[in-house]
Nucleic acid binder design. Structure first.
Lengths: 352, 352
DNA sequence: CTGAAAGCGCTTACAG
DNA sequence: CTGAAAGCGCTTACAG
């Protein structure tokens, strides 16, 4: 048997010089080497049927010796499964979503599934184009990391493909959603400031098009009211989740002559931008003003001073999303729950 | 004709309720609707042959009306091309490589090619596993963003697949390499400091396993010597390209009682970490010490003070890499050249 | 310029 | 438990 395998392998090796691509070992070659039919090899590959131990051993030997790797393209065509999962993200180079992508990658590795990333750039039209692309590439399931797609579009998609979506609460067959508690996070950040004795707390909101921004805002307001501090719209300015918008927001606040001893920015990028604005005016953080952000982005532990923030478990979220999709793919019911928001008190906030 | 197409479309729509996946329109359906053979449809799809205008029009009409989208999986199996290009990156969530990924995405969009990202995590074994994965998925070409693969492995790969690699100079058939001038960049950073009057300039080196780190170091040394300043090994400490390592490095420098008025860190992350170390000791940047980084990462414009650095055109590099691969794929000879390093003088450096 | 036919490398009813 | 056969949706020599 070994001899036969050698022969086959050699033949394939020789064909290298003739053909272009080093002709891969095919399932048919394995079948021939193991003395069984292609069907049988396929079955043990997929665990589709019980096969006698003897044949199983022969086949596995042949696979090892020939170095057979099933061609995912062929499997995709024949079996309708491509062993790839689509990941609709907004941008590949966000300091923030990156962690989620890594989490997805971690959960997927070793499962045979590969992620296929597409970026929607916060544009619903673009996102739906991405969804089409993923479907046309015949992914087996899709993970949608937030974005502006309508609930309806997602539900429709879930009718034919398992879908896991983050950032919204949605129930539908074949769809699982993972929602972070932005309201609780916003409240937590504000409570932290209140506990430090602050009562004049400015808020830089995020992009209003994002539901998470609205919820963080609501959390801010709820914490204020629970502490008997009246909500002052003059202390609230809108940003766009970017550093620049945070800088601009704080400048507007200052220019308007608003008094505040603490500042809560709806994400870390805006908190950093705002801090730069304060730095430029020589307003010390936290000596003069306490600043807290939201997200716990990678850079936040290294700002000067290190930024207090609300930790959002993006890595974990990515892991959970992929696990949930894997469960959906296996016909199981996902059970994952997103961890609760957690305060990370560093050095940008202090007792008044 | 229109009527016929309708009929076919309806049939397909009806089959939805029976089958699972909304059965896609196939090439065969288009052929039938247009009254031609599958071969002809395929040919106009691929521009493989000249087809009479009349048929061409009929086929295009049928395609539009039926909403036909060629199945890339089938094309992959039959034609040997999957219209996907592999991108071997090190990590998906680097604030730095992210821009390159976006550049790749930009250059690829609209070309029909999709990127397939895999992460090697700076581990040669892992990277070569990634390469295997990409090949087993039958990508049409590969972009390798730096990493620890051997030149040999890359050249071997390029024998069967177009390869574009960044971060090294390598010549081989089917392979194109894009090299940034790290030496020049290191020299530029150091020159900037020297021009500001600094003569005691500390250097935090990056990971020695990375050639770029070694070259930046050499550039530092060359600039010093060109200015008649002797190279002092005591002013050079090793980091690992992370914030923490930058912080640690500066602490070591300070603990050793080294005197310096300026600091050049081999990347922005270490510069930020080092700045935090200085901040903790109440050493002002740039009042007491000037700091310059390398890379011009996204966050660098927003540190306090904004960080002077050497701009590395990652976005452009990504774009160029993808364009070069596209050229290779089209049988052309790539011509792309990486832009030269550029000084971005912000506020962390000043005249002594 | 265009078709019929074979084939890409698998999977999956269908029959034992 | 296992094979032979058909088929997934395309592409590509091969013949006109």
């Amino acid at each position: 048997m070994t001899k036969k395998i050698r022969l086959l392998a050699d033949t394939s090796a020789r064909s290298d010089k003739v053909g272009k691509v080093p002709q891969a070992v095919t399932l048919a070659m394995v079948a021939r080497a193991a003395g069984v039919s292609a069907s049988t090899v396929s079955r043990i590959l997929n665990g589709t049927a019980v096969v006698s131990d003897a044949k199983k051993r022969a086949i596995n030997d042949a696979i090892d010796q020939l170095g057979f790797i099933p061609n995912p393209v062929a499997r995709g065509l024949a079996g309708g499964r491509t062993f790839s999962v689509g990941v609709l993200t907004q941008t590949l180079d966000s300091p923030f979503y990156g962690a989620a992508l890594r989490g997805i990658e971690e959960s997927l590795r070793g499962t045979g599934y590969s992620p296929l990333y597409v970026s929607g750039h916060w544009d619903a039209v673009e996102e739906s184009r991405c969804l089409h692309l993923l479907r046309s590439r015949r992914v087996d399931g899709i993970i949608v990391l937030t974005g502006g797609l309508s609930d309806q579009a997602l539900q429709l998609c879930a009718r034919t493909l398992p879908v896991v979506v983050t950032g919204r609460a949605l129930k539908a067959p074949g769809l699982y959603s993972l929602l972070f508690d932005d309201f609780g996070g916003g409240r937590l950040a504000t409570q932290h400031l209140i506990e430090l004795g602050h009562r004049q707390i400015a808020f830089i909101a995020g992009d209003n098009a994002h539901p998470d921004s609205i919820k963080r805002h609501a959390g801010y307001r709820a914490a204020l009211e629970a502490a008997g501090i009246s909500y002052d719209p003059a202390l609230v300015v809108s940003g766009a989740y970017t550093e620049d918008s945070g800088l601009e927001a704080v400048e507007n606040l200052l220019a308007a002559g608003q008094k505040f001893t603490a500042l809560f920015a709806a994400n870390d990028q805006m908190a950093v931008g705002a801090s730069l604005g304060l730095y430029r005016r020589s307003i010390g953080v936290p000596q003069h003003i306490s600043v807290i952000g939201f997200d716990d982005a990678q850079f936040s532990a290294y700002t000067h001073p290190p930024l207090s923030t609300i930790h959002q478990p993006m890595l974990e979220l990515g892991r959970l999303a992929a696990q949930a999709l894997l469960q959906l793919l296996a016909g199981q019911k996902p059970t994952a729950k997103v961890p609760a928001p957690r305060l990370v008190a560093r050095e940008s906030t202090r007792q008044i």
